[in-house]
């Protein structure tokens, strides 16, 4: 394992940022770095169960390119990171609260539960924090 774990805080629902978070998380996780992903604010929307690609991914010009070229799906990359590496994903409890969502409305098998920001930030003191 690499000395410093990587903490990725995602708060934008922009497709390009979700894609970058998924790429960083999955590649770092399979490269023997411990990865912890925290999904908050609008970034929670794309993680809702049962959406089509167009409903799930909203973004700028590059988002359309990612869809047209069939770049690896961000949700699939998060899943691969968890499957093949040492990675956890948590949904922000505040984001779920304000939306009135339950944890079971999120894509199955992706999340390790809900977490508060305080706990995530406290854990992140031991590693590198990236915010998207």
């Amino acid at each position: 394992m690499s000395a410093k774990p990587l903490f990725i805080l995602v708060c934008s629902e922009e497709h390009e940022k979700i894609q970058m978070a998924a790429m960083m998380a999955s590649v770092a996780a399979v490269s023997e770095t411990q990865v912890h992903v925290f999904i908050s604010m609008g970034a929670i929307y794309p993680f809702k169960k049962g959406l089509s690609d167009d409903q799930r991914y909203k973004g700028g010009r590059f988002s359309q390119v990612l869809k047209d070229k069939k770049a690896p799906d961000a949700m699939m990359l998060f899943e691969q990171g968890k499957e093949l590496g040492d990675m956890t994903m948590h949904a922000c409890s505040m984001a779920l609260d304000v939306l009135g969502w339950e944890e079971d409305e999120l894509i199955e098998g992706l999340f390790d539960g809900c977490l508060g920001l305080t706990k995530f930030l406290s854990d992140a003191e031991s590693g590198e924090l990236i915010t998207l």
């Binding site: 790429m23 999955s26 590649v27 399979v30 070229k69 069939k70 770049a71 690896p72 990359l77 691969q80 093949l84």
Partner: peptide
């Protein structure tokens, strides 16, 4: 035809 990081992830899955 797969874009980054697709080929790497496929390699890692296969290595397992």
């Amino acid at each position: 035809g797969a874009f980054c990081p697709g080929p790497l992830m496929e390699l890692i899955a296969a290595l397992k």
